[in-house]
Structure formats: C-alpha cells, structure tokens
C-alpha cells in the first residue's frame, strides 16, 4: 500500500487556478457529450450549409449574409441556454452544484467557471461557423466589435435564462423544456427562416424574443457596419437583467 501523508495541510489554491481548472472540466464535459455537440455544433453548421444551397424558402440574398449571423445567434443560444440548462439541471439533481459549492471553488467560482466554459465553447463555434460561412460565399464586413458585444450580451441573457430553468425545474423537465424552446426559437426568431410569412403584428412581437434580437443585431452589425439599431440592444439587455434577477432570486442549488 502506498504511504500517504494525511497530516492536515488545509488551504485553497489561488482563485485563478481553481476557476481555470473547473472551467476546463466543464468544457471537456460539454465537448464529450454527443447530444450537446449535436445542438451546439452539428445543427448550426448543417443548417448553414444546407440552406445556402437549398432550392426552398424565400431566404433573402445573398443567402450567406442572412444565414451566417442567424446561425451565430443559434450557436450562442444552443451553448449558453440549451446546453447549459440541461447540464446544470442534472448537476443540481446529482448534487454536483452543492458539493462543488462546498469546496474552495465556492458558488461564485462555480458560476464564473461555467461562464468561462460557455464562452470558450462559443469561440470554437464562431470560428467554425465563420470558416464554413466563408467557404460558402460569405463576405465578412461590418463591425466585429459590435458583433462581439452582442454575442456577450446575448450570452448573459441566455445563460441567465438557462440557469433560471435549471435551478427551478426538475432535471427531466429542464431537459424537455430546453430542447423545446430551442426548437421553437429556431423556427420563429428569423434565425434561419425569414419572418416574412407572419403578419406585421406577430412579427413585431416575435422580434422581442432574445433569439430574434440577437439574430437581428448580428445581421445589422455584420452587414451594414457599425450601425446597429437600438432595439436589439434594448431587448437583449431587458432579457439579461430580468432573467439574471429571477435566477438570483429563485435558483436552488440542491
């Protein structure tokens, strides 16, 4: 048997190391999960490639200029909202949140680590989708800075919504609801299919969805340059603040 020196030597590792190691673990788990990869990587990429060429729908031309911002919004939603909600829901059920919260990592470290993992996965998604977009004829232009800021704001809004769901519903309910919301928002947010078939009143209402606001905002930022109208920012900000406040109020750790 190996000799172990069990003499107490308590102490926490530096906060940066704790969070980095936790974020790395979360990211590894995200990338290892087949269903998550389907949502975060496969579906956005396949939608982009297929819809650019498909002889269907009245997708505005140039199609790539419409589709790339849309699938980028979808990518953010899939990772920050759907993937995070499902994973966190089961982690709550299995007591992972409680146990990690009781280590030197702590609850705030846990949230920061999760956010870092989401952002890291988003970097991979964006890199892939931009590369595929260019391959299918997209010409990037406009304001990268504005797009970057919109992605960050969208990530906050969707993360808060995902955590709100994971922290209040049962894990199975979260799994079902998060997938359903993903599908619904994909169809009605003008992400891959334009909203032209809806009546103007409905269209207006749909534009208040966070996914629609993110897609609209990204389209403006990556097309017309720096000028992004105020509404997407405002809509995303309201979702972010409301969802974060609700998550802080109602999230249960165990």
């Amino acid at each position: 048997m190996t000799a172990l020196d069990l003499t107490p030597a308590p102490g926490a590792a530096p906060v940066g190391r704790r969070i980095a190691r936790h974020a790395a673990m979360e990211m590894k788990l995200l990338l290892r999960n087949g269903e998550q990869l389907l949502l975060t990587i496969v579906i956005p990429t396949v939608l982009l490639v297929v819809l650019v060429h498909a002889p269907l729908a009245d997708i505005p031309r140039p199609r790539a200029a419409f589709l790339v911002p849309g699938v980028l919004a979808l990518a953010v939603m899939s990772t920050a909202f759907t993937g995070q909600a499902i994973a966190t829901g089961f982690e709550r059920r299995y007591g992972v949140l409680r146990r990690l919260g009781a280590t030197p990592l702590g609850r705030s470290g846990l949230l920061v680590g999760k956010t870092c993992a989401v952002l890291a996965v988003e970097v991979l998604q964006v890199a892939l989708l931009v590369a595929v977009g260019i391959a299918v004829g997209w010409h990037p232009r406009g304001s990268v800075l504005a797009a970057f800021a919109l992605v960050l704001l969208g990530t906050v809004a969707f993360s808060a919504l995902g955590l709100l769901m994971a922290g209040t519903l049962r894990a199975e309910a979260t799994l079902a609801a998060a997938n359903l919301v993903y599908l619904l928002l994909l169809v009605v947010s003008g992400i891959a299919f334009p909203l032209t078939d809806f009546s103007p009143a409905v269209r207006h209402a749909l534009r208040l969805l966070p996914s629609a606001a993110l897609a609209d905002g990204l389209r403006a930022a990556l097309d017309h340059g720096a000028h992004v109208p105020g509404r997407p920012w405002l809509v995303l900000a309201v979702w972010a603040v409301t969802a974060a406040a609700a998550a802080l109020r109602w999230f249960r750790w165990g």
Binding site: M25, L29, Y94, G95, V96, R98, R99, G254
Partner: peptide
C-alpha cells in the same frame, strides 16, 4: 446525489 459529474 453524491455530487460528482456523471460523465467525469
């Protein structure tokens, strides 16, 4: 609920 990631 022993508190470990199931896939880890």
């Amino acid at each position: 609920a022993a508190g470990v990631y199931p896939a880890a």
